[in-house]
Design a binder for these strands. Structure first.
Length: 273
DNA sequence: AACAGCACCTGTAGGC
DNA sequence: TGCCTACAGGTGCTGT
């Protein structure tokens, strides 16, 4: 479900809601949501006072005052909410009860989301690329790679850049005017520069709109995002492109949908743009 | 190296 | 209504 802008929105909400609170009780309704020992997870978290909340890529990190650190990855349908709405009840996987009487619920219809104790303090992780929020970071990451893989696959690779998912990869490529199947190594310097600028831009814009709500994403206080009103290609198969009017096409890349405008995103290099 | 296929799971939408 | 298929914002494994 959530990509970087949605996770960032959730993290900002969590900071306001749970920092400083103490977990009086933790209940695991679906223990497989916990990676590693569920018993150990429960033992470590009970009584923990939350000192800080962090984001790294699509991971949420929660640090306790005693240095305990755990992560939450929401995968496709994970949600963190303060209030348990009736339809969410059957998807409740983990419940955190705080000593002030408030609660935080981990809801996850498809059960893909994972919580786990993190071995070290902080969210350093050797498998994650840099944050794609600055053009210079994206540029450096793309320039360091030489591969014939499609640019879309590269953007989705969390080891290259951490946080971009299917929506924002498609939107960033549309904004840059680059076809998703173009091999990275075929991109000109100017084209690499365009992607490096468009990816942070679409992410920052989406954060400003508190993310994209297509189905079940909600911020911690239950609000929808607004970025779905501003998508140019994702989920718009057959609709006219806002720039040139061509019908948006959908193809499969690495078994995932890719949406693009055949008029604005040519398959061949377009040095003239 | 990089791909497809499948696994993990459930819900929803559309065709018949 | 039911049955079927396809599809979904993610990641990780296996085989080729």
């Amino acid at each position: 479900m959530p990509e970087l802008p949605e996770v960032e929105t959730i993290v900002r909400g969590l900071r306001r809601q749970v920092v400083g609170k103490t977990m009086a009780a933790v209940r695991l309704f679906w223990p497989r949501s916990i990676e590693g020992s569920a018993a150990e997870f429960h033992r470590q978290l009970k009584g923990m006072t939350v000192a800080g909340i962090f984001r790294r890529g699509k991971y949420i990190g929660v640090e306790g005052e005693d240095g305990t650190f755990f992560t939450i990855h929401l995968r496709m349908t994970g949600k963190l909410v303060r209030e348990l709405a009736a339809p969410d009840r059957k998807h409740l996987r983990v419940q955190f009860m705080f000593s002030d009487g408030t609660a935080l619920y981990f809801i996850d219809a498809r059960k893909f989301g994972r919580l786990r104790l993190w071995p070290c303090r902080g969210l350093s992780c050797p498998g994650l690329g840099p944050e794609p929020l600055r053009a210079s970071a994206v540029l450096a990451a793309l320039r360091a790679l030489r591969t014939m893989r499609p640019i879309k696959s590269v953007l989705l690779d969390q080891a290259v850049l951490a946080g971009i998912g299917n929506i924002y990869a498609d939107e960033a490529l549309f904004a840059a005017g680059i076809h998703p199947l173009r091999p990275l190594s075929s991109l000109s310097g100017k084209e690499i520069l365009r992607v490096s600028r468009s990816a942070p831009r679409v992410l920052h814009e989406a954060i400003g709109r508190r993310g994209t709500t297509l189905r079940n994403y909600r911020s911690v206080d239950g609000r929808s995002g607004e970025n779905q009103e501003h998508l140019n290609v994702y989920g718009r198969t057959g609709e006219p492109c806002c720039e040139c009017g061509s019908p948006i096409e959908r193809i499969r890349i690495n078994s995932r949908s890719s949406h693009f405008c055949p008029g604005c995103q040519k398959k061949m290099s377009d040095a003239g743009r």
